[in-house]
Design a protein around this nucleic acid. Structure first.
Lengths: 347, 347
DNA sequence: GATATAAAAGAAATCGATTTCATAAGAGTC
DNA sequence: GACTCTTATGAAATCGATTTCTTTTATATC
């Protein structure tokens, strides 16, 4: 019930509440004897520090928030790990929320961060429609660092990757081994700048080779992790099926491969697949997956470091914007396409 | 700076703070006209609810905590997803902490939950040495629900699995196809009841077949996800190598398989591997992994439901203890062992 | 030992929403 | 219109740590 408070400790130790507070946070300001006495009283009465009261008093939460699409995607889980590494010594409490790619959920989470007066927020991307709220957070002294992409708003801090270039690289590779008809199974389009950038890269890559953009070849999945069935059904029912599929994540790639195998389509002999994220098990799949390696954990770690180092007047400084390198990892899920007659295609 | 408060809204709307508070939480107690007026004032002045102040005032945080070993393990990530599903409507803020199987980190997190006066805590197991703190949480009105195992303390709520029986089933299968010399690569022993139960199952299984326990065949990994290299090195350097390896997680299994392949050992022809958790990609590995399917997300969902439904006087009720079924999924990573001469072993 | 300076400790206001208890205003009944 | 019974609202205390400003005590210097 009525737990021991700073006031009561003060009374029991024969000092003032201010002194007790100093024992807690600036022990060097307190005489050794006093310190010992206060600590003894705390121990004897099993004093439990009340973070709620402290945060309230400081008018700012000691916790920071993290908003990711979902922890089920290994790439974001890794980001979370990196974030926790960075909070390790400082051990700031961490609020974690998932949007599941639904803008209204994201909005709710941002709202919560605001109402909680959090110390800062890390976001693995955000829906453009919520840009206003992100700005409001900043305006209220809650720093935001965007991960996984480079936000359009040049005033936002970020530790991202170059989604555009990463996809260009992947497609250049597919072109180089002879593919011309390449499908893309991407994330949700409207709710993610990442996906927008990736789509643009896909379109530009085609254009650079003089290949017309065929909207039938581009699928945007909803907030589901394993959209293979639907994607494969649609792609295989086209008049002319693709010879390669670029997937927006390794998990998507896995589910596509599984579905293709189920229908007797061989990978990579009949259709090539390229993933994204380079999941830790992707090298062990059948076939080992060609993918874009993303430094997920590092992004989280650096993003959190940024956040923790940010001074109180962060909005007066130029934002820190960092893009980390991705690496295209070639394994065995992509092969040159075969033309209609079954002969290997020569580019 | 000085943001709009309930008091100020009250003054602007010509009502009392109590009424404003009622507009927020029990609008049905307020006359329609008053409600509209208050809401209008809030809108016009961009009032932002202060959760810190509210929680402080109520002497209890509206947030709940989750403590898992690491989000990098897909099984726990899935549990997290289930937990978030359960908090969906109620959208209670979620603190997430990871122990990385280190008791002192776990202790720090538990301490934080206590100091935050959280509404409740979900734990994916806990180190026996921290049982005192868990009890203290309960004593302070913070309900704990243990996931992933059945805690020894009969007063703790739980939604777990039967680790013992699950491992017995797996070993019975390995015995049934002819293995006699079976290694186990388990999680950290001292810091996890789960591992203790699994080890006991392993020992009992051997004993039931009259096979002596060989400590050289049992490895406990530290807080690392991919201990394949070390495990394989040690197991292959034994005078008599095992014909099968039971791994405590699919990720461990993957890393073992990878290491074995690197040394030219075939799976399952030379050594069989059995995993645990049934990761969503395990079916797509080479070879597809035989594993113990765990309802990870369901555990999280149910655990959180328990927590949210728990009445304030939860410590007066008998604890709810639920064990969910696991399922042994046979794929292709286990095969009958081959004897020294290369002829298939017949049981 | 007097004075200047630094170190240690205290008093009291403060943060913003909640909540209890009391009061006022309507609604209904005879 | 007097009465009771709801329904709506207000006044004021409260939660517990922090922090500013002030005062007291210790230390150093001449």
């Amino acid at each position: 019930m009525s737990s021991i408070t700073v006031q009561k400790v003060a009374k029991l130790a024969g000092v003032s509440a201010a002194t007790v507070s100093r024992c807690l946070h600036s022990p060097h300001l307190v005489r050794e004897a006093t310190l010992q006495k206060v600590r003894q009283v705390m121990r004897e009465n099993n004093y439990i520090y009340n973070i709620m009261a402290a945060d309230f008093s400081r008018r700012r939460s000691s916790a920071v928030g993290v908003i990711i699409p979902t922890p089920a995607a290994s790439a974001f889980a890794q980001t979370l790990v990196g974030i926790q590494e960075a909070t390790f010594e400082r051990n700031a409490p961490l609020f974690v929320g998932s949007t599941h790619y639904r803008p209204e959920l994201e909005r709710g989470l941002l709202r919560q961060c605001l109402e909680h007066r959090l110390g800062g927020v890390l976001m693995a991307g955000f829906d453009p429609s919520n840009a206003d709220l992100v700005r409001e957070l900043q305006a209220n002294g809650i720093a935001c660092v965007i991960l996984w992409e480079k936000p359009d708003d040049p005033l936002l801090h970020c530790v991202g990757i170059d989604n555009y270039q990463s996809v260009r690289n992947a497609l250049d590779y597919l072109f180089s081994i002879g593919h011309r008809r390449i499908a893309a199974v991407l994330g949700p389009l409207e709710t993610s700048n990442r996906t927008r950038h990736r789509l643009q890269a896909y379109r530009d890559a085609l254009e650079s080779r003089g290949i017309p953009y065929d909207p039938e070849l581009v699928l945007f999945k909803g907030p589901f992790l394993l959209p293979g069935k639907e994607a494969v059904t649609r792609l295989l029912s086209l008049r002319e099926a693709p010879t390669a599929i670029f997937a927006g994540s390794d998990l998507t790639a896995v589910s596509i491969i599984s579905e293709l195998k189920g229908r007797g389509v061989r990978v990579p002999e009949d259709i090539s697949i390229c993933g994204f994220d380079d999941n830790e098990v992707s090298a062990y799949l059948t076939p080992p997956l060609t993918s874009v390696r993303v430094p997920s954990a590092k992004m989280g770690r650096l993003g959190m470091s940024f956040l923790l180092e940010l001074p109180a007047d962060f909005d007066r400084l130029p934002p820190r914007r960092l893009l980390l390198d991705t690496e295209f990892v070639i394994r065995r899920s992509c092969a040159p396409p075969v033309d209609g007659t079954g002969a290997p295609f020569q580019s």
